[in-house]
């Protein structure tokens, strides 16, 4: 039930209009970071306030919302955000990717392919891909204006010179439609290929840094690389120990004092769906009670 003491989806109408205008400009200029007057939310900056504001501006009462953090629906911050919208917008919630119409995420893109009927909202901590090369906003804004992305290539190439490969494993920078270099938020680079040609609308909200950016459906998104060192979407060289998936992103779990490890899908819905369909991983058959 909606909490009647708040406006639908918490934010006042003027704030939502301001965010909606920023989202539309973001859609019109894919990958460009649109400044917006981010509001203080009843949750801390850095905990998804940008994503929450974008979600609040997009939700309709008919939506079914899924919230994930690290790919999982049951991590505490995901639970907290889902509860916030169930309370303030009265929307239905789900843990199933294929049932959701709006998905708010932190650090992952779901394994299940998205559809044109979905919107994926990313929580973004530092929206500026050039920030760690140049801390000044006044400078990075100029670099985007002039398409001066040489510094980024130099940094990646220095990695190759020193380590034989690009030593960036998450928040791996991308170029959007050949124009803006964009931070895809701290998703593992394993997820980068899913950014491109995605049928769903992808929206990115950075509350503390007051930026919104967007990828319309089917937008071309290229991970930065070099001819002699092509981008590689890597993951741990294991299968999921619960569902046996060989092509999903894995969490590493330490299971005892001796440091025994197992690998499980970070996308909990994907993993559960596979197990329901009868797939079994190395440790599942012997540990059925783990389903509790």
């Amino acid at each position: 039930m909606t909490d009647q003491s708040y406006n639908f989806a918490y934010l006042d109408e003027q704030t939502k209009r301001m965010i909606r205008r920023a989202i539309l400009k973001g859609i019109a200029v894919p990958g460009y970071q649109v400044p917006f007057a981010s509001r203080e939310m009843p949750m801390p900056y850095g905990w998804g306030t940008g994503g929450v504001q974008v979600t609040a501006a997009c939700l309709v009462p008919e939506d079914r919302l899924k919230v994930i953090d690290q790919g999982a629906d049951d991590t505490t911050n995901a639970v907290s955000i889902r509860k916030f919208f169930a309370r303030t917008a009265g929307v239905a919630t789900t843990e199933r990717t294929d049932e959701a119409t709006v998905i708010q995420t932190r650090h992952r893109i779901p394994e299940t392919p998205l559809t044109p009927d979905q919107i994926l909202v990313y929580q973004v901590p530092i929206p500026e891909p050039l920030r760690f090369l140049e801390p000044r906003e006044s400078e990075t804004r100029k670099m985007h204006e002039l398409e001066e992305y040489g510094l980024m290539h130099v940094k990646l190439y220095e990695d190759i010179a020193r380590h034989g490969q690009i030593a960036t494993s998450y928040a791996y920078p991308v170029r959007v439609e050949g124009r803006y270099v964009m931070d895809p938020s701290p998703i593992p680079k394993f997820d980068n290929p899913k950014l491109s040609g995605c049928p769903a609308i992808q929206l990115f909200g950075a509350g503390r840094e007051q930026r919104i950016y967007a990828l319309p459906p089917w937008t071309e998104v290229v991970s930065l690389d070099f001819d002699d060192h092509p981008f590689e979407a890597s993951k741990a060289a294991h299968d999921c120990d619960l569902c046996g998936a060989g092509h999903s992103y894995l969490d590493e779990v330490i299971t005892d004092d001796q440091g025994t490890r197992m690998f499980v899908c970070s996308d909990t819905d994907f993993c559960a769906g596979r197990r329901e369909a009868g797939h079994q991983g190395r440790l599942w058959a012997s540990q059925p009670e783990a389903a509790e």
């Binding site: 639908f8 989806a9 939502k16 309709v60 319309p216």
Partner: peptide
């Protein structure tokens, strides 16, 4: 009912602008 009607309208505008 501005909060709900504007939300539904925005979704249509967003879809239209995004596609």
């Amino acid at each position: 009912d501005a909060p709900v009607q504007s939300a539904r309208a925005f979704r249509e505008i967003l879809e239209a602008m995004a596609r």
